[in-house]
């Protein structure tokens, strides 16, 4: 358990570097995919809800500290995203949920939730129309993240996935 957790933290570092340095090149109209969330959802499905919730909290904490953002905003959103993703960590259905389409939908659900919560605490402008704000800050990044997740999981080796 401890090795698994350390490994997931270890994987987090390159993904975080990628997220804060290189993701700008695939940004579309200021909408960025959240690679950290994809990793979190993946581990949550793989290792369960409790694991996902705690990992989400740790990922969020590190993200907030390292990026210098509002401490707690990513913590809260990632914790909830990990918790939601953990619902799909049924032992019998795990391999089904890690199939590209299912995984994409789970990432979409988690990403929308995380984006909305994150934006409520950090970026959302309440003077604007709340519906359009939620659409821009929540749905669009969620959609973009899920498309990216779908592509990643599609090219992820199946054997490795089944082994894990």
């Amino acid at each position: 358990m401890r090795t698994k957790f350390l490994l997931s933290i270890l994987f987090f570092i390159p993904v975080l570097i990628f997220q804060i340095t290189l993701v700008q090149f695939i940004t579309w109209n200021a909408i960025t995919p959240n690679f950290i969330l994809i990793l979190l959802v993946f581990y949550s499905i793989l290792y369960g809800q409790l694991y996902g919730t705690v990992l989400g909290f740790v990922y969020g904490l590190l993200f907030d500290l390292i990026t210098g953002g509002l401490l707690g905003s990513a913590m809260l959103s990632s914790t909830l995203a990990g918790f939601i993703a953990g619902y799909f960590s049924n032992e019998n259905k795990r391999h089904i949920n890690l199939k590209p389409f299912n995984f994409g939908l789970i990432v979409l659900l988690c990403s929308i939730t995380a984006s909305i919560i994150f934006s409520i605490f950090s970026t959302i402008d309440f003077n604007k129309n709340i519906i359009s704000s939620l659409f821009e800050e929540g749905l669009l990044p969620g959609l973009y993240t899920s498309i990216v997740a779908l592509i990643i999981i599609y090219f992820y080796p199946r054997r490795k996935l089944l082994e894990s």
């Binding site: 989400g56 500290l65 509002l70 707690g72 809260l76 914790t79």
Partner: peptide, 29 residues
């Protein structure tokens, strides 16, 4: 665990301007 972690997150949110939080954030950053 979820409730505890959410409470911890909210606590962190409310203590953003705390000097020690700022220091930790500066070191990590």
């Amino acid at each position: 665990v979820l409730i505890i972690l959410i409470l911890a997150s909210l606590f962190a949110l409310s203590n953003n301007n705390n000097a020690s939080v700022k220091n930790v954030r500066t070191i990590a950053f």
